[in-house]
Write a protein that binds this DNA or RNA. Structure first.
Lengths: 220, 220
DNA sequence: ACTCAATTCGAACGAACGTTCGAATTAGTG
DNA sequence: CACTAATTCGAACGTTCGTTCGAATTGAGT
């Protein structure tokens, strides 16, 4: 009967095969997601109206609902796809690398490269992290937790190998702060490319973790 | 006649004397700002409705407009007061301190202490940084620029004194990222207090700036 | 107690919101 | 071409939005 967006709808109903079927439906949906990402980036999730999204994607207001059942699910699709992709790329890049310091540098480089190549999507991921509710929120939270745990693992290994002492939690969250804050200030005309930025942040962060003198005013 | 909120209204029309008149008007406005801060923190600026603010502050919807002329101006008042206060406290604390490293540590401690003591306000300041427009935006931006420049000054001095080499811009913005990101993860039941967090972040950041080996793969 | 200004409120305004529905259009196959 | 399913749309739904207005209430000074 044709109420397609009420179900989850994976690639025109088929179960996803190996590469990507890329049906008409999938391609149009991807286009809409791209335009919606730009609008969410510029006006924020709450501040962007369905009419804004309609205008940006060149599709009628009602037409959008053929592709997703609610504004919230649209944000979910954007966040899930973005987060899944960055985790996937990270895993591929980490494969075969054994040195913990190099692994951390790869983590940072992967994050910043993807961030700058997909600024709008990553801003929506960072800035609208608490906009989803219940089921949507928990599914994105699961991916985030996996990403977080990977970083924790790398730092734990670095710590073990070099006999360092620092709070892994604070270190990881400080690193995420350094990296994610970039969406508030990065200017393509002024700032260096991802590789150089990743190098500078890696230097600050990694050297910061090495204990030359333990904590400062320890003891008392 | 009584259309008070159309003018800027400084403490019941009087020109502000030395300490603080603290009229009835001022006190009530401060209460409203406090409640509004909590609501903006929880639901975001766009996501919070005037009716939410009315409910939270226990004042009728129309009554709120006696104290400010628009929702946007309310956010502006919150941001301006918060930012002004943190800059003011910083200046007081930096007075008399000469050692650049100690100055940077004070900067970080001041920021985190105020952040954790006023989490809602600081989240509204960080997370809704782009919500204001035109005149409101530029006035807050001016304070932000001053705050930023103070930090740049401290790092430049540290760099000069110790003969270090790093990009001040990247360093400052990385530091702000580390510090401001805290609103996304800090949990009072799990995490340490401001002083300890400031110590750990200062250690990571400051040690990160000291060049033991210059940049890594330099040359090529 | 009377007065005037300061403060508060109920009720309503028009606009914009997310979403729905049935009809119209288009694309894909025989 | 004809037939069916996939896609798109105009128009409207009921709700909520930020804001306004005139009347009611309260507080302070005499």
């Amino acid at each position: 009967m044709g109420s397609p967006s009420t179900a989850v709808r994976v690639s025109a109903g088929r179960h996803r095969a190996a590469p990507a079927p890329a049906t008409r439906y999938d391609k149009r949906l991807a286009e809409i997601l791209t335009h919606a990402t730009d609008v969410f980036c510029e006006k924020g999730y709450e501040g962007a109206s369905m009419r804004d999204l309609s205008r940006a994607s060149g599709m009628s207001l009602a037409g959008l609902y053929y592709y997703f059942e609610s504004k919230e699910r649209l944000l979910f699709l954007i966040q899930k796809h973005t987060f899944t992709t960055i985790v996937q790329r990270l895993k591929a890049r980490l494969e075969g690398v054994r040195d913990p310091e190099e692994q951390v540098r790869i983590f940072i480089l992967n994050h910043l490269e993807y961030f700058l190549a997909n600024q709008a999507a990553m801003k929506v991921l960072s800035h609208e992290a608490d906009a989803l509710k219940n089921g949507f929120a928990s599914e994105v939270a699961a991916i985030k937790r996996e990403y977080y745990r990977i970083c924790v693992g790398l730092l734990e290994e670095l710590k073990r190998e070099r006999g360092l002492q620092f709070s892994t939690r604070i270190a990881v969250l400080s690193l995420f702060g350094m990296m994610n804050w970039i969406y508030t200030w990065h200017n393509a005309r002024v700032d260096a490319d991802a590789e150089q930025l990743a190098g500078e942040m890696s230097d600050i962060f990694l050297r910061g973790l090495m204990n030359g003198s333990r904590a400062r005013k320890d003891g008392h």
